[in-house]
Nucleic acid binder design. Sequence first.
DNA 1: AATAATTAATTAAACATTTGTTTGATAAAT
DNA 2: ATTTATCAAACAAATGTTTAATTAATTATT
Lengths: 218, 218
Amino acid sequence: MFKFAFYCKKMITKKHLQILGKAEELFATRGYEGTTVRDIADAAGVNLAMISYYFGSKEKLLEALFKERMSATKQRIETVVKNDTLSPFQKMEIMIDQYIDRVSEKQTFYKVMLCAQVINKNTVVLKLLKELKLVYATLIREVIEEGQQTKVFKNDVDVVMLLTTMTGTVTNMLINKDYYREFNDQRKISNTAFEEQLKSNLKKHLKQIFKVILGYES
Amino acid sequence: MFKFAFYCKKMITKKHLQILGKAEELFATRGYEGTTVRDIADAAGVNLAMISYYFGSKEKLLEALFKERMSATKQRIETVVKNDTLSPFQKMEIMIDQYIDRVSEKQTFYKVMLCAQVINKNTVVLKLLKELKLVYATLIREVIEEGQQTKVFKNDVDVVMLLTTMTGTVTNMLINKDYYREFNDQRKISNTAFEEQLKSNLKKHLKQIFKVILGYES
DNA sequence: AATAATTAATTAAACATTTGTTTGATAAAT
DNA sequence: ATTTATCAAACAAATGTTTAATTAATTATT
């Protein structure tokens, strides 16, 4: 007899995504260990046993979250890098814009990701993180080498250092957002207006830095 | 009768520091919630009950750790900023060097701190973090304004953005260190040599960035 | 189309561990 | 003689996971 469940064992339904979304929020505010499966079940409005039923275990739920959220990332970068109509310069700027928009859009997950990079335990999550970093660095190196050949970029560029400044600045801003707002006294403007302002500032800031490190003229 | 314990209730003995050190290591690798008081007691080689006896509770131990590690930070920055023999330019460069050396020296704690900034719960820790950030930003702004008056620095400098790039790059490198080493194929050199190399690279990198953002000429 | 058969979804309760903390007794230090 | 430090044991509460029963949904058969 044909077993549908066998072939689609890892199929993600809407209910899966609903639970993952609530779990993500809790992980971001309380941490993985600080969140109980009862918390997740309550937040998602499902019975406690459904977590094990849907994901197998709390740990596999975490893995599922990372797989889900990181699934399209690689393709997104590749689309830019492999686009022949774009110059290396354009590719770098688009990459900065894309990254900032992405983090802004998926703030909760990037908080979870940040902690996961420090508190490393789950091998599946570690593998996903490592792979993503390697893909990122390799693709960006391609772009930089392309720019170096056309004499647009400097010859000695520390790729990972540059990427670390980009990801570090953006993820750290995620943490310091409130202080940024308070310090610059932007408490009066609306939340959405502030978010847009911040994104704009970050993009300008990082592009200025990239310009210097890569050595191109605008 | 004279009560020594009353006046020195919060006195930190060598045993306190020993336990704090082991707890710090565990928090950095497993997270606060992921670490049990039994783990800490075992690692420190003391009886389980001693943790409560010395610190009152697991949470107060965390607070004690933050208080201990952050105690001298404010003074360290102030010493540089209030030093009249240094130019604003020199102050900024010293601050970068100091920060990188400090994070490199206390890597474990900065990992704990990074997670604590995301997973905020303990009010004492939150207050310490907030105060430190405000002190930092305020002092740096003083230096920048000093440099602006003598026309050494540009007039429109986003202080918190600049600080975010510094702390973000350094703390993110803490997380990406292994990838950095692997990607640049520096696996052959010794650990200490790599650490020194990395510190040197970070300092050079951030000074270059600061130079552009602040607009001074070297 | 109606009904039986089968699979999937949901639930409350129970399970065995693990958790942070406390106790009360004993040893060490003052 | 009094305080301080240390310990094994016990405590209740919380934890992730499983069970067994029930309901809902789907598929197969008449």
